[in-house]
Design a binder for these strands. Sequence first.
DNA 1: TTAATATCGTTTCAATGCTAACGATTATGA
DNA 2: TCATAATCGTTAGCATTGAAACGATATTAA
Lengths: 173, 173
Amino acid sequence: MDHIYSFDEYGELLPEEKDTINQLTKAPIESLNLHSITVVTNLYRAAQGLRNKMEREVLAKHGLSWTSFSILYDLWIWESVETKKLALSAGVSKATISNITNTLERKELCYRKVDNRDRRITCVVLTEKGRKVMEELYPKFHEGEVEVVSSLSVEEQKLISSLLRRVIRENNF
Amino acid sequence: MDHIYSFDEYGELLPEEKDTINQLTKAPIESLNLHSITVVTNLYRAAQGLRNKMEREVLAKHGLSWTSFSILYDLWIWESVETKKLALSAGVSKATISNITNTLERKELCYRKVDNRDRRITCVVLTEKGRKVMEELYPKFHEGEVEVVSSLSVEEQKLISSLLRRVIRENNF
DNA sequence: TTAATATCGTTTCAATGCTAACGATTATGA
DNA sequence: TCATAATCGTTAGCATTGAAACGATATTAA
């Protein structure tokens, strides 16, 4: 990553964009919901920036991606988690969890364990080494979390969380 | 992707999580900023869900990723864009743009053009075929945008946009 | 002018990520 | 019981992603 900035300075549609969309689609500008576009644009940019910042400033030290870290976090909290649940939690496919688990196993941060009651299920378990990494990394990750939203007041943080939560709920994200 | 759901049903820290974090880090629970955690968690989940939904419901038809689409969008609006600007706009590295441009070129949706004034710079240009794809895809993408935030009122959409924009600004995302 | 520096895009290599197909296991139903 | 269906994790194949190294070009400084 070189550096991230806003392609459009304002986080809203520029006149050029409106013109182009108006000219080049059958849908005239009147039928475009500009507020929806703005929400989606800013939502994705904020999340992308968040991920890049964390991977660069916190996770790079241990060569972990955002998703790897989120898997380790789940294991840290829940001790042992099924592959499928890890996928649902992280919002990625089972195949991705399988691949990342391989990488984490190679780093000796976790290991697989077949469920005895249902042998189709594989549980992933944190190793002692994995636990130590989380103990070291989590406080720094949390610092980053605080920093990223520090420009918002506590009330605004509650507000944006409740709005985001509604989006998540309504879309079954 | 199988299906996405909230690992924690509430979008907030569960008692188990608080306990674990409290026990396993040197940082006691009092020093954790729970609101920051909630904002970051919900922000990333919403964005992840958004991306997955769009790739699945709109972009899969043409085998495009979110990033590929965002590049095509920039080209659609601006005709011709430098590689570096595309990277900054999409929030990915130059290398990623280079790779994706290769794929898009293979699909004949764009082509490269060396800048005559500064031969270090490569501009990427949309082809006629690429323009047609965007004309077909953009209205559907926009439908998705509207749908995703449809549970929020216009006032709430303005509000969340302005909050997100402040996060973006303050972090130089 | 010329050497040093900076900038830009590509390449290399490994990890992440998805879809589809697969093999193993469990559940269901006739 | 036994065939069928459903569920789970992995594998195969390909695209995406980034860090680092690299070559080409442009800028700066001496």
